[in-house]
């Protein structure tokens, strides 16, 4: 007991206060696992940070060394292939989890007043995750990742007004050059994680302040307690999900380990060039329409998603369209899935 009283004197926070602070009452509907999808990307984010730091120990961000250092991680360092594969699959699962979380929030209308701002923060987190996926893959410096980055940067350049600036800022020059990789690296490994941590903190603080939006299921009986304890009850659920994710990641890493294609060759573009799966939607969209139009529509769609809570409220109050968001959501999901499958199925 000596130690605990010694600590209490120096850190004047009592266990009870701490519990009070963290022990948010959790609505009963969170007993269903699909309502816990918000914690999943957060957990995966931690995994990405841990494995990312491990990879950074050996990764050398320059066009002359990057490929060989990834090769070293994959072929020579003990368990290097495992941590690289976990990082790769972690990214994939994280993007999937963010999208699922967002779909759940959307279809249950959890973004409605007073939670509009948190929805917008969530949108920012989605974009950050996607950019992290893009920049992360470009660091491998294999043929596909090199050309993916080149194509991606040039798509960005077709944005009116700021396009060229954004490309120059991303590549550090007109084209991919000696200084490009270090930029991509610092964006991926420093700027994006810091922004994500800040926004994630805001996101969670807002949830904590506003409370989780509550849902009632018809199967629940009247008069039963509507909440249960975060601690330890809900924490255990999150630990369970974390373990399931770790098992899933390890299995994926061993069964489908991250591969290493041929080294980037700025003089020859591969026959089949594709971005990572989560950009299939945008890639197919770009192939359907002319460059600038596709970029502007994409921007418009993203903007619409951002301000959807306000559009939804306008539709509900002024037009009385209660069900509009459900139909728009179904349409959006179907077109995203459709475009992704289309892009995945064809070579060009």
């Amino acid at each position: 007991m000596g130690i605990s009283s010694w600590l209490k004197e120096r850190i004047p926070v009592s266990g009870d206060q701490l519990r009070e602070l963290t022990n948010e009452p959790v609505p009963n509907h969170l007993r269903h696992w699909w309502f816990c999808l918000g914690g999943t990307p957060a957990y995966l984010f931690v995994i990405q940070i841990v494995t990312g730091i491990l990879l950074a120990f050996y990764y050398e961000p320059s066009s002359r060394t990057a490929y060989n250092s990834v090769k070293y991680i994959t072929d020579e360092a003990a368990y290097g292939w495992y941590f690289r594969s976990v990082h790769k699959w972690g990214a994939t699962l994280m993007i999937a989890a963010v999208i699922l979380h967002q779909m759940r929030v959307f279809f249950t209308g959890a973004y409605r007043k007073p939670r509009e701002l948190n929805w917008m923060i969530g949108m920012c987190l989605l974009l950050l995750t996607l950019i992290a996926g893009f920049t992360g893959y470009s660091l491998v410096y294999e043929q596909l990742s090199y050309w993916g980055t080149t194509v991606g940067a040039n798509i960005g350049a077709s944005v009116p007004v700021v396009g060229d600036l954004s490309k120059q800022m991303l590549l550090g020059g007109e084209t991919y050059n000696e200084r490009t990789l270090s930029r991509l690296y610092i964006i991926h490994a420093a700027i994006l994680p810091v922004l994500t941590i800040v926004l994630l903190g805001l996101h969670i603080t807002l949830i904590r302040l506003q409370g989780v939006s509550e849902l009632k299921f018809s199967s629940e009986k009247e008069g039963e307690p509507a909440h249960f304890n975060f601690f330890p009850d809900h924490l255990l659920t999150e630990i369970k999900i974390g373990l399931v994710l770790m098992i899933l990641l390890s299995v994926l890493a061993t069964v489908l380990p991250a591969t290493l294609g041929p080294r980037a060759d700025p003089l020859s573009t591969p026959e089949v060039i594709k971005p990572e799966w989560f950009f299939y939607v945008a890639f197919r969209w770009l192939k359907l329409f002319s460059g600038t139009f596709a970029v502007i529509t994409t921007g418009f769609i993203v903007f619409t998603m951002f301000v959807w809570p306000f559009i939804d409220s306008f539709l509900r109050r002024r037009k009385g369209l209660e069900e509009a968001s459900v139909w728009v959501g179904i349409l959006a999901v179907l077109s995203i899935v459709g475009l992704t499958v289309w892009e995945a199925a064809v070579a060009h």
């Binding site: 003990a78 368990y79 292939w81 495992y82 373990l243 770790m246 098992i247 390890s250 299995v251 890493a253 061993t254």
Partner: peptide, 13 residues
Amino acid sequence: LFLTSLIFVQWME
């Protein structure tokens, strides 16, 4: 189960 999967990883290594 997680431990088992890690042991599998080590075996592969």
